[in-house]
Simulated assay, not measured.
Amino acid sequence: MARAAVQKQTVDPHVLSLKVTLRHIRPPIWRRIVVPRDMTLADLHRAIQVVMGWEDAHLHAFTVGGRQYSDPQMGLEDAANEARVTLDSLARSGMTRFTYTYDFGDDWEHDILIEKRPPATTANAYPICVAGKRNCPPEDCGGIWGYEELLAALADRDNPEHAERLEWLGEAFDPEDFSVASADVVLGAAFGRPTPPATG
């Protein structure tokens, strides 16, 4: 009787594991992504947007060791070019933590941790999303405080803002809703990652 082939999980030395956590929200909203070591901060920006669920509609910047990096086309004064910095160069310099800020109005700050050891996977193309918890806040909801007010209004039908907030959202919003598999599919599409063949 034939036995189904089982893909062996391995740790790829050419990748890094990053944990991206949105600051100041409890319970935490976070994602774990495994990325190529030669990924630039510019591409990391794209990956974070996808797996967090942002719409890439606002300015952004990384802060690494006190220095800011962003897209030169955004015109941020004193910000270095994010496309010229690789994650490998940061890891080799001993950097383990840095931050990413999206939307300087709502001021969504993300902590990025370069983890000590990437998880074993069966993947042969990257980046991939391997873990995460909780839905991303809606764009333009007013930052941390606005998001807390939004959740309070949605949870209480007697809240005078309940109907208005539902209308503003245009759809149901579940703060706990997050699918690793769905995030990974969108991430793969964004980076042109080959789709694995169907099994069964």
Rank of each mutant, 00 (worst) to 15 (best):
M74K: 09
D88L: 12
S70D: 04
R92M: 13
L87M: 09
D88H: 09
D43G: 10
D88G: 03
R84Y: 06
M39H: 02
S93C: 03
P27Y: 11
E55S: 14
L90M: 08
D71S: 09
E55Q: 15
N81P: 04
M74Q: 15
A47N: 02
Q68S: 15
L90F: 00
L59E: 08
A79V: 00
L41E: 05
A57N: 13
A57G: 13
F62C: 02
R31E: 06
V85L: 12
G53Q: 06
W54E: 09
G53L: 08
R97Y: 08
G94E: 04
A79D: 02
T63I: 13
H58L: 05
P72S: 04
R26I: 10
S89K: 11
L87T: 01
P27K: 11
V85K: 01
H45C: 03
G75T: 01
H58A: 08
R46I: 11
T40R: 10
R37S: 14
H24P: 00
G53R: 06
A42P: 00
A80V: 01
R31I: 10
D43E: 15
L59A: 13
D78T: 13
I33W: 10
D38P: 00
T86I: 00
W54V: 01
A42T: 09
V51K: 06
A91F: 07
V51P: 03
T63G: 06
D71L: 03
S70Y: 05
I25R: 05
A57E: 14
